[in-house]
Computed example of a mutant assay.
Amino acid sequence: MSEYLVIILNETGAEVTEAGLVNKAGAWLEAVPAHAVASTTADQVVAVLTGAGVSLWRETLPALPSAKLQKILPGLMEDRLAGPASAMHFALMGTSADGSQLVAAVDRSVMDNAAATLAALGHAAARLVPDFMLLSESEGAQVLKGPDGLCRVRLPDGTGFTAEESLTESMLESASEVVVSPESWHATLARAAATPITLKQGRYAGRADMVTALLWFRRAGLIALAGLILWAVTVSFETTRLNREADAAYTEAEALFRASFPDVRRVANMRAQARQEVMKLRQLSGGEFLKLSTLLFEQSNTLEGVLLEGLRFDNARGELAATLSFASFADGETFKNGLSASGVMVTEGGSRQEGARVVTDLTLRSAS
């Protein structure tokens, strides 16, 4: 069995354009016919994506772990994009000596297509590499024209692109030096076996046989979104703005009440029941709940965009557990620092990205 099977996909990720076997030394052995790709076995499968739809920039990013950077990249790179960042997948493609990083962006539909195409062939690729990233970096722009007529270009700063020959010539007019890559097309593709570079990061990392499930959830999400829009339109015609705000406020208050006092099964008079439960907590815990919740609400008022999603008080531990959402990870850090400065011991249970918001679980406890 050969060491590597390299599969080349077109720019949409929906079609296999070529495939070949590469040995352990990184040498191209032989081409694999399209009809034989599914039945070909290898120690590892690597996919190469035609990079016409991949954009690459060199950026100076915050000093954060890669996992956190993945979550905030859509917001950081939004100004670079012509369309919405929510439709794009971002990947970190390497760090230079000065600390700057290469950031790649590709449409999520391309990533989904690539995964579906490989799954249909019975393969799960360990890496998905943009083809132009297989060229070597040098003092001049490296150019390699493939059999499809497209030119792969690697620029001195590490960035690159794949484009038609006429467009490539126009884009390289200002380049100080242009060098035709000395390697052959297949020798360049063979480098995919050894490179650690991959677009399979974040939600696509380690993804194998989940394509069907993902597509199902996408359809379900679209149906749910359509239902939500229909509901919103219906409500806007049936109620006045003031009544909508009042209903929303009551619903939010009831949800917060149930989250704060889960032992209360039936809500009849929320104000009276809340007063009663607070008095119980005050008697049992010496006002610890009121103290912590007051500090929490005071800190919420100092920072715009903070939403309280849930609240629960553990009387036995004297701890207040809160779930909040912020506009960014930085706002979350500012919020925690403000609580700590107020003399509250804050423990973070975890943070996660939900749409455009960052949801964080915090546990508050008095320092004394």
Score class of each variant (00 low, 15 high):
Ser176Cys: 01
Gly140Glu: 15
Val235Ser: 05
Asp247Lys: 08
Leu128Asp: 10
Leu214Arg: 13
Ser166Met: 08
Tyr204Cys: 07
Pro182His: 08
Thr240Val: 02
Cys151Pro: 03
Glu139Tyr: 08
Lys200Trp: 10
Arg154Val: 02
Ala163Thr: 01
Arg219Asp: 09
Ala163Gln: 06
Leu189Asn: 11
Glu165Asn: 13
Ser176Thr: 11
Arg191Gly: 02
Phe132Ile: 00
Gly160Ile: 07
Arg207Cys: 04
Arg203Lys: 10
His186Gly: 03
Leu189Tyr: 05
Leu150Phe: 05
Trp216Tyr: 05
Gly202Met: 06
Glu169His: 02
Leu222Met: 15
Thr162Cys: 03
Ala205Trp: 02
Trp216Lys: 12
Asp131Ser: 07
Asn243Phe: 04
Ala208Tyr: 06
Ile229Asn: 00
Ala224Leu: 12
Leu189Thr: 06
Gly149Glu: 04
Leu242Tyr: 06
Met171Pro: 02
Leu214Ile: 11
Ser176Asp: 07
Ala205Asn: 06
Val153Thr: 05
Val235Phe: 02
Arg127Cys: 01
Asp157Tyr: 00
Leu128Phe: 07
Glu245Cys: 00
Ala205Val: 02
Phe161Val: 06
Glu139Gly: 11
Leu215Cys: 02
Asp148Ile: 00
Gly140His: 14
Ala193Glu: 08
Thr239Asp: 06
Thr188Ile: 07
Ala192Tyr: 08
Leu172Pro: 12
Pro130Phe: 01
Gly160Asn: 05
Ala175Asn: 01
Met133Lys: 02
Ala255Gly: 12
Asp209Asn: 12
Asp131Trp: 04
Glu137Pro: 00
Trp185His: 12
Ala163His: 02
Phe132Trp: 00
Asp247His: 04
Ala124Glu: 14
Ala193Leu: 05
Ser170Trp: 14
Arg127Tyr: 02
Ala141Phe: 03
Leu199Lys: 14
Gln201Val: 10
Pro147Ser: 14
Ala255Trp: 11
Leu230Asn: 12
Ala232Thr: 09
Gly140Pro: 15
Phe217His: 07
Arg241Asp: 13
Leu144Ile: 08
Val235Tyr: 05
Ala255Glu: 15
Arg219Ser: 09
Val129Arg: 03
Trp231Gln: 08
Tyr204Met: 11
Val129Ser: 00
Ala190Glu: 11
Glu173Cys: 10
Ala192Cys: 10
Thr212Leu: 14
Ile223Asp: 01
Pro182Leu: 12
Ala175Gly: 06
Tyr204Ile: 07
Leu134Tyr: 08
Trp216Arg: 15
Tyr204Thr: 03
Arg191Lys: 15
Leu199Ser: 07
Leu172Met: 09
Gly158Ser: 02
Ser138Asp: 13
Leu199Phe: 08
Val180Arg: 13
Ala220Met: 15
Glu169Phe: 00
Tyr204Asp: 13
Glu139Gln: 03
Leu150Glu: 12
Phe237Trp: 15
Leu128Lys: 04
Ile197His: 11
Glu177Gln: 09
Ala220His: 13
Ala255Tyr: 00
Arg241Leu: 10
Arg218Tyr: 06
Gly202Leu: 10
Trp185Ile: 01
Val143Met: 13
Ile223Gln: 04
Val178Leu: 07
Leu215Met: 12
Glu137Phe: 00
Gly206Phe: 00
Val143Pro: 11
Val180Pro: 00
